[in-house]
Structure formats: structure tokens, C-alpha cells
């Protein structure tokens, strides 16, 4: 089927969160790759200390949009972003903002586990070191061990903490990347299909972890798995061809979506 998008116009079913409960507020965000209009006028609120899932078919722009929130798109020269992304009511695209500090506040976990070719300890200590979060070795140890603990990895690696991070299994590597991200005390964690390279058992562990982490962090997860979105998220946003089609409570999206496209997608009729 070839859906007609003229009728999307305004995103439907995307009630803005009540004042104060939104951590991130995006307003009319557009992203261009050279001439390609990849994200079209997306406005959405992301709730504090909850998990928001971005779903949609491949190439719909959900990863691109995710990378707007920590300005990772800046590293792509052809990419241009317009509109506002406010975190705690400060537009991160204003000129005075320090991108480096922003990325410390907004951590990111990638599709493929990408530990550095360093020891497990050094992988986690990397962020705290460059941001000067620890005054001495004891403090650094403290940060590293707590982060590994929070990422549910400490038990498995404490005997080989000085061995290369690349020697871990895929799921462990991904949790190491999560530990690395939370070691710099972020407020938001962006996850770009964090389980797509993992087996079901490792996936279950990561999902469990996400559920725990949401008490302290605002989490946005991009996923291709509808079940995963339903399991871990409180709110779900459905993207299609650069548009945000619909955004609402996860339960509502998966039971009674407002838009026909959403319904078709979640029932597997296309995408």
C-alpha cells in the first residue's frame, strides 16, 4: 500500500505533556541532508524519568531525530537542523551552548556495541577522565564501579576489569557501553536500536536494565521491535517518511491508535 501523506498535516494524538513533566520539548524540528528533507516539522515532548520509544519503518528518520537531541548530527557535514530542541527549557541549538557539555548530559548508546579498544575499566573511566569528574583514583574507581553496577555488569566483569572491553560478549559489550554512558552522570540516555545486534537473552537483560534506569534517567529508545516498544516504554512515537505521525501513551498506541497508518504499522500490515 502506498499511503497518502497529505492528510498528516498536523501530527495527531500527540498531547503535549503537562507543564513540568516534560524533560525535552521539541518544536518544529526539521532536518536536511543537503537537499533531502529527512525530518519534517516534528514537535514532541519527552517525559522526565520515563521511557519513550520511537518506532517506524526503516528510513523514516527516527534515528536522525534521536541524533538531534544530543547534536550528534553536527558531526555530519551535510546535515542541517532547524527548529528548537529544549532540554529543561533551554534550546540546545542556541549559539552559546557548549556541545561537548551537552553530550555529557545526553548520553547515547548505539546500535552496534562500540567499546573502545581499551580495558573494561578504561572504557568506563574515559568519560569521567575527560570531564574531570574525579579528583583522584579512589573517586574514579567509585564512579567506574557504580556505573558498572548500575549497568548490571559488575558481577560478570569484576575479576577481569583490566582486560579488553572488546573481549566481552555482544550483550556484555552493550551493557559496557551503557555503563560508559552513565559514568558521566547524564540526565538523558538515547538508545539507537540497542538490542538489534543481540540475542534474545541479552536483549531481555538490556530491557530489564532500561526499566531500572528510568527511575534516574530520561530514556529515549529507537526500536524496530514492536514488542520491545510495548514492553519497555511508557510513551511511543510513530514516525513515517520524516513525519511524526502519532505520539501517545504506549498502551493507547498499541490498542487504539488514532491514525490509520499507525494501526497498519503495528498490526504488521506494512513496514
Amino acid at each position: 500500500m502506498n499511503p497518502n501523506f497529505d492528510d498528516i498535516g498536523e501530527t495527531i494524538g500527540a498531547p503535549l505533556l503537562e507543564n513540568g513533566s516534560a524533560k525535552i520539548n521539541c518544536n518544529d524540528v526539521n532536518v536536511f541532508y543537503d537537499d533531502k528533507h529527512a525530518i519534517r516539522k516534528v514537535s514532541v515532548d519527552i517525559g522526565k524519568n520515563e521511557v519513550t520509544a520511537f518506532i517506524g519503518p526503516s528510513g523514516c528518520g527516527k534515528s536522525t531525530f534521536l541524533r538531534c537531541i544530543n547534536r550528534m548530527n553536527d558531526t555530519i557535514t551535510s546535515c542541517r537542523v532547524t527548529g528548537e530542541v529544549n532540554i529543561d527549557n533551554i534550546n540546545i541549538y542556541n549559539n552559546e551552548l557548549d556541545v561537548v557539555l551537552l553530550r555529557a548530559r545526553v548520553g547515547m548508546v548505539f546500535q552496534k556495541p562500540n567499546p573502545f579498544p581499551k580495558s573494561i575499566y578504561e572504557n568506563v573511566a574515559y568519560g569521567p577522565k575527560i570531564h574531570g569528574l574525579a579528583q583522584n583514583k579512589a573517586e574514579l574507581d567509585e564512579i567506574v564501579y557504580t556505573s558498572l553496577e548500575k549497568a548490571g555488569l559488575l558481577e560478570e566483569v569484576k575479576d577481569r576489569i583490566n582486560q579488553p572491553g572488546t573481549g566481552l560478549s555482544g550483550g556484555q559489550q552493550q551493557r559496557l557501553c551503557i555503563a560508559r554512558a552513565i559514568a558521566v552522570h547524564p540526565e538523558v540516555i538515547l538508545m539507537d536500536e540497542p538490542c538489534s545486534a543481540l540475542d534474545p537473552i541479552a536483549t531481555a537483560k538490556i530491557e530489564e536494565l532500561i526499566d531500572e534506569l528510568k527511575q534516574n534517567y530520561t530514556i529515549i529508545i529507537v526500536t524496530h521491535s514492536m514488542q520491545q516498544a510495548a514492553r519497555v516504554s511508557q510513551r511511543t512515537a510513530f514516525f513515517h517518511l520524516g513525519y511524526l505521525v502519532e505520539c501517545d501513551d504506549t498502551k493507547r498506541i498499541f490498542t487504539t491508535p488514532d491514525h490509520k497508518l499507525t494501526q497498519d504499522y503495528i498490526t504488521g500490515r506494512y513496514g
Partner: peptide, 25 residues
């Protein structure tokens, strides 16, 4: 590229990324 992304995403600058991650790798 994922090494660079990983480092930038933690908030490393370009030269920090080069010295601490790329050269090491």
C-alpha cells in the same frame, strides 16, 4: 566510525577523541 561516535557521544572533543581513542585503536 562507531569508535568516533562513541567518543563524541560521551562529550569528547575531536582532539581528545583522536588522542585517546583513534590513535590507540
Amino acid at each position: 566510525q562507531s569508535m568516533r561516535d562513541g567518543s563524541y557521544a560521551i562529550g569528547a572533543t575531536q582532539s581528545e577523541t583522536i588522542i585517546r581513542v583513534l590513535l590507540q585503536a
